[in-house]
Amino acid sequence: MARADQKFGWLELRPGGLYCAPADIYIDPGRGVPNAIITHGHADHARPGHGKVLATAETLAIMGVRYPADTPETQALAYGERITIGGVHIWLAPAGHVLGSAQVALEYGGERIVVSGDYKRRPDPTAAAFEVIKCDLFITEATFALPVFRHPPAEQEVQKLLTSIAQFPEQAHVLGVYGLGKCQRMLSLVREAGFEEPIYLHGALIKLTELYQGFGFDFGDVRPVAGTDKAELATALIFAPPSAIQDKWSRRFQNPRTAVASGWMRVRARARQRGAELPLVISDHADWDELLMTCKETGAEEVWITHGREDALAHALIAAGQRAHPLCIAGREEEAA
C-alpha cells in the first residue's frame, strides 16, 4: 500500500486499477467496483458491473449501447465541469481519442495529477481535440511507444483507399475498422475526401454509428450489408470489424480488396498478419513523437506509463530529463512493500 503522505500517494495502483483513496474512486478499473471514472467507451477501459459511473455524456451513452443490461448509477460530466469528492477536485478534459473520450484531472493536497486515458493529437472530426493540462504527474498511455510508429497524415492514407477504388473499380473494397471511433472517423474522412457512393456497414458497426449520428454526425449514405443484394456489394466500399476480414463473413464478396485502418499497419509484418492488401496507417492513438511532445508539454515532473511499450518511452523520457516509471512495475513494487 502507498502511504498518503508520500508524493502522489493519494493515487495508487490496486489490483482493480488506478485508485484514488481520498475520493474512493477508480479510474478505468478492470473489474466491477463501487465507484468508477471512465475515460472512454473502449472495452479495455469501460467495463460493466460498476456501482456508480462518472464519465462524459457521450461515454455513458456508448456504454449504454455496449452493455444494455448493465444499469449503474451514472453521473455525466461535461468537459471542464468540476466536482469535488472527498476533498479531491476532479474534472474531465478532451483526449481526442474517440467521441466522448476524456483525460481525468485530479487535484488534492496541492498536487495535480492527469490520467490521459487513450489519446491522440491529430485532428479528428468525430472527437474533441486533445487539451494539454499542466500537471505534476502525468499518467500516459503508450500503445505506439516505439520510435518506428510515426503516423503519416490521415488524408494521405485515405487517398490510398480512394486510389485503389479508382484503380480496381470492378472489385469490392472491404475496410477493417474498430467499431467505436475508427469506423466513424473513417466514414468522416472518406466523405471529406469526396467519396459520395453509399458505404455499407457490417452489422457489428451499425449501432455505434447510429449513436454518433444521434449526436449530430452526418456520414452521408450509409447502409447495412445485411439484406443488400450481392450484385450491389460486388463493387462497393464496405466497412467491417478487422476480425471479419479473415472470417467466414467475407466470403460473400467476390474477390474483394481488403484494407485495414490501424496504427499497427505501419509495420509490414503486422499488416500481413491481418491479411491487409491495403494497409492504411490511421491511428486514434498518439504516435511516438506525440507521446514525447505531450509528456513534455504537460510540464509534469513525473510520468507514469501504462498500456503499451512502457520500456521504450520510459527510456526516452529519462534520457530527456523527466522522471518516468512504467506503471505496472511501480504497482508491483508497492504491493511488495
Binding site: 516505439l146 520510435p147 518506428v148 511499450r309 521504450a312 527510456h315 526516452a316
Partner: peptide, 8 residues
Amino acid sequence: DPDLFAMS
C-alpha cells in the same frame, strides 16, 4: 539512440 533502435 542505440537502445531505442535495438528495441525497434
